[in-house]
């Protein structure tokens, strides 16, 4: 087992050193330097080696999950249990590595999220430095970003102390907490809600202008949509159903014509099955795409 893959080691080893020890910092700096040297080395990699390098990393990363799925799993493994044979050694190793692999994925994704921020900074700083006509808006964006970073971290630092939980109560708030709340809850969340709700206007306008009964498909689509819209209006369903109940007088066949029943029938018989058909198709596509990406048959992983 590679000790790196142990989530938390109680005793020190080659791979894990005590918190804040000089051994840890020495190894950490050496590792970082080695990593950076390898990265610089990649700058000089020959063109024909690029594709295999990318394909290698892609394959190795995917191989872990494929192995984890296909390899026999340990049955009723107890804490501290030693593996009995090679198969079990591999299965224990795969199980123990899970958290590290997931952790690596998240950290790497985190670093790549920073890429978006870096790109945003690059664009807007360039606009400001070149005196672009929209430079004012770039300043607004960077100022908002700076303020949120400032108040966000200040609030976080305040919470690290013993008063952390007390700051959930508004009575204990200071300037930092009010500032964070103003920016996050007062502006960001409200604007987020506004941005997403604007689509309601466009959807009404588009439906009014384009939702026409021009073909069989459009007619089916429109009928299904209208029925769903009606069934979402509880008051309409209630009035419709009460009338049907009065007419049916207990007749189970006529009771089927209640709006809730019809909507449920459409939902259970056609809607769920058609969406399931779509999902099967999408699922097969994702599976095929997954295999192509893993084996670097798809362009993004080819490095070409």
């Amino acid at each position: 087992m590679i000790p790196l893959l142990q989530a938390q080691a109680p005793a020190t080893s080659f791979w894990s050193e005590a918190f804040n020890s000089s051994e840890l910092w020495t190894k950490l700096i050496i590792t970082l330097i080695v990593g950076l040297v390898v990265m610089v080395g990649l700058l000089y990699a020959p063109i024909r080696a690029r594709k295999p390098i990318v394909a290698f990393f892609t394959f190795i990363s995917g191989a872990y999950w494929v192995l984890l799925y296909l390899w026999p799993k340990p049955i009723d493994r107890q804490p501290g249990e030693m593996p009995l044979n090679t198969v079990e050694t591999v299965s224990f190793w795969l199980a123990d590595s899970n958290n590290v692999v997931v952790s690596f994925t998240q950290i790497l994704t985190g670093f790549l999220l920073g890429l978006g921020i870096f790109s945003l900074l690059k664009i807007h700083l360039t606009k400001i430095s070149k005196g672009h006509k929209d430079a004012f808006f770039s300043i607004v964006l960077l100022a908002s970003m700076g303020l949120m970073i400032w108040f966000g971290y200040a609030d976080w630092f305040d919470r690290l102390g013993e008063r952390g939980a007390m700051l959930d109560n508004r009575d204990n708030w200071g300037f930092t907490q009010y500032g964070r709340d103003f920016l996050f809850e007062g502006l960001l969340q409200q604007m987020d809600a506004a941005m997403f709700s604007v689509i309601a206007f466009y959807i009404l306008s588009a439906a009014y202008r384009a939702f026409r009964v021009r073909s069989v498909e459009a007619t089916i689509l429109l009928s299904a949509a209208l029925l769903v819209l009606l069934s979402l209006m509880g008051a309409v369903s209630f009035v419709w159903d009460e009338n049907v109940k009065a007419i049916a007088n207990g007749n189970p066949f006529i009771l089927n014509f209640q709006l809730t029943e019809v909507a449920q029938w459409i939902r259970n018989t056609f809607q769920t099955s058609s969406i399931r058909g779509i999902q099967f198709g999408v699922g097969l596509g994702a599976l095929a795409m997954g295999l192509r990406l893993w084996l670097s048959l798809e362009k993004p992983g080819s490095g070409s």
């Binding site: 199980a95 997931v102 013993e162």
Partner: peptide, 28 residues
């Protein structure tokens, strides 16, 4: 981050996935 990996981690090794995460006890 990376919802798919995160949920996979939680499903396979909850202790490891949540390990190291902290929250606020009262007055501490």
């Amino acid at each position: 981050p990376n919802a798919e990996a995160a949920i996979n981690g939680i499903a396979n090794d909850l202790k490891g996935a949540f390990g190291g995460r902290k929250d606020f006890p009262p007055n501490s």
